[in-house]
């Protein structure tokens, strides 16, 4: 299944969940936040949230800022 993650196309397993994607993308980071098609996906629902083909996902981490 093709989805877009942080602006780039990614091929994921058909049954991939948000939790799978986060595990794949955010090693070394905690306090990650995820949006799918613009909507926040709460951490408590990551494991139960299946991705769909064409989804646009943002995986974000804390950084410095003014």
């Amino acid at each position: 299944m093709n989805v877009t993650v942080n602006g780039s196309p990614v091929d994921l397993a058909e049954d991939a969940t948000v939790a799978d994607l986060v595990a794949q993308r955010s090693s070394g980071h905690d306090r990650v936040a995820v949006a799918c098609n613009g909507d926040v996906v709460p951490r408590s629902t990551w494991a139960a949230t299946r991705l769909s083909p064409g989804d646009a996902v943002e995986v974000l981490a804390p950084t410095a800022g003014g």
């Binding site: 942080n6 980071h29 905690d30 306090r31 981490a61 950084t63």
Partner: peptide
Amino acid sequence: VALRRVEAVAGNSM
């Protein structure tokens, strides 16, 4: 503090 795409962030040291 801010949020950015995970690839653009060097780790969680901050």
